[in-house]
Amino acid sequence: MSNLSLMPLFRRSIGFDRLNDLFDHAMLSETPHYPAYNIEKIGEDHYRIVVAATGFNHDELSIDLENQVLRISGKHADQGEDKYAEFLHQGITRRSFQLSLRLDEHIEVQDAHYENGLLTIQLQRIIPEEKAPRQIPIQQKVLANKNTSE
Rank of each mutant, 00 (worst) to 15 (best):
N67K: 11
F56K: 00
S62Y: 04
L65D: 01
D59K: 06
K41S: 03
T54H: 11
H58F: 10
N67D: 12
I42A: 01
Q68K: 11
N38V: 05
L61V: 00
G55M: 10
F56L: 00
V51K: 08
D64P: 09
G55N: 07
Q68I: 00
E66N: 12
H58E: 15
I63Q: 09
G55E: 10
L70P: 02
G55Q: 10
D64R: 14
S62C: 09
S62P: 04
G55P: 09
I42R: 07
I42S: 10
Y47W: 11
A52R: 14
E40N: 14
P35R: 01
V69D: 12
I49E: 06
N57D: 13
L70W: 00
L70M: 06
D45G: 07
V51E: 08
I42D: 03
Y47H: 09
N57L: 11
H58Q: 12
L65R: 02
R48F: 13
Y37Q: 03
N67R: 07
L61S: 03
V69S: 10
F56Q: 01
N67S: 13
T54S: 09
G43E: 08
F56E: 01
V50E: 13
V51T: 09
V69Y: 07
I63M: 05
G55C: 04
G43L: 11
G55V: 06
N38G: 08
V50D: 05
G43P: 12
F56R: 02
Y37A: 00
